[in-house]
Write a protein that binds this DNA or RNA. Sequence first.
DNA 1: TCGACTTGTCCAAACTCTGGACAAGTCACC
DNA 2: GGTGACTTGTCCAGAGTTTGGACAAGTCGA
Lengths: 217, 217
Amino acid sequence: MPPRSTVATTSSMPAAGQRVPYSVAARELLRNTLLDAACHELSSRHWADITMADIAVAAGVSRQTLYKEFGSREEFAQILVLREAESFLDAVEQAVGRHLEDPSKALAAAFDLFLTAAAENPLLRAIVIEEGAEELLALLTVHGKPLVERAADRLTDVMVAGWPLMRRRDAELLGDVLVRLAISYAALPNGPAGATAAAVSSLFQPYVEKLVKDGLS
Amino acid sequence: MPPRSTVATTSSMPAAGQRVPYSVAARELLRNTLLDAACHELSSRHWADITMADIAVAAGVSRQTLYKEFGSREEFAQILVLREAESFLDAVEQAVGRHLEDPSKALAAAFDLFLTAAAENPLLRAIVIEEGAEELLALLTVHGKPLVERAADRLTDVMVAGWPLMRRRDAELLGDVLVRLAISYAALPNGPAGATAAAVSSLFQPYVEKLVKDGLS
DNA sequence: TCGACTTGTCCAAACTCTGGACAAGTCACC
DNA sequence: GGTGACTTGTCCAGAGTTTGGACAAGTCGA
């Protein structure tokens, strides 16, 4: 089995263990092999020092194949970041699911889990701590539209599914705000994860309780 | 993620999570996709009713590719059985490793685990319980040389590694005998797994204790 | 004995990956 | 401010795989 370090399955998780035709699985494997190779390189060098040729070689593939699969260095970086985000979102969804009875606790648990994992994640550490990763940093912030939208969407979906009385437009706002806060605290922590999570959770508690209980807008 | 149902990694398990170049991973994926497809078909039909074309289609690949990868139907079946065996051997090795201090307990635990897993394994059930799998059955018995040798080898290795005083030629005999017994009881159970395991273990206990303690031949 | 079907092999066409080349751009360094 | 070393992104011919259609030989039930 080709091992993926941080992510359980690939992006859109269709009913685990499903039968995938070889051609699809092979393409997925190629993309993951390349993304994995980049992650691996990142553990020893700065993003700015890693060339497309390095990544191709590390994946055991030609530079041409890399370009064919991900149009440009920019796109490659974008997808690298998005893939990592999916694994965080998987974890966050599970955390929320474990506290459906208490939205405030769910929020705190998800935030705590996210910040703790973020502090340990190799890719995020490379972006946040080290120099020479400005290009990647931009993908979380000024060029982070795809990331924020995708994350807010998934967060919205899990909230609407878990708390049916909550209106979608309220969940959308909350999702967007929470994602932005999460990224901010991941990029620039402010004390231990648990404390930040508790603080943010207490701040949103009244609002969330209201939405969940009587669905007011 | 390309899902393998029963086996954790592919045969010769090299230090999990190791970086594999794409071309190698892709070939492995192709083989596993085909073997998985066959397993899947076996859960609804007899082996004799499954054509090579069925397997190729189920894997999303041409019949030609299947033949190129595994010369013939015979070879394919052989490798299907051997792959399943590797997953059993992984489990058995772990069971032995958990009881290194008491060889008799190790033997009983491994035998128990093997028989229990064998009773539930879809491929083995297809061979043992259903009609129309004679071709596969032969691969465990009259044509089972590759299987028995491979299993005995791995068992020998784990014993020699775990109990250094044991002589290799004694371990080889013991490995061979145990594998043959295990196959026999898997094919034709004789009471519950635990009871069989305990009985076999008690039978071998004096011999094993002697080999482990003073390495006499 | 016939017809339907399978296995195993062949081949040309389609597709994918490779590796060498090149223009355009960046950047350190003189 | 120019030079050389290096990277990105694109191109292309050639190598390697996969495909699908075809066929001989064999099996098996009717």
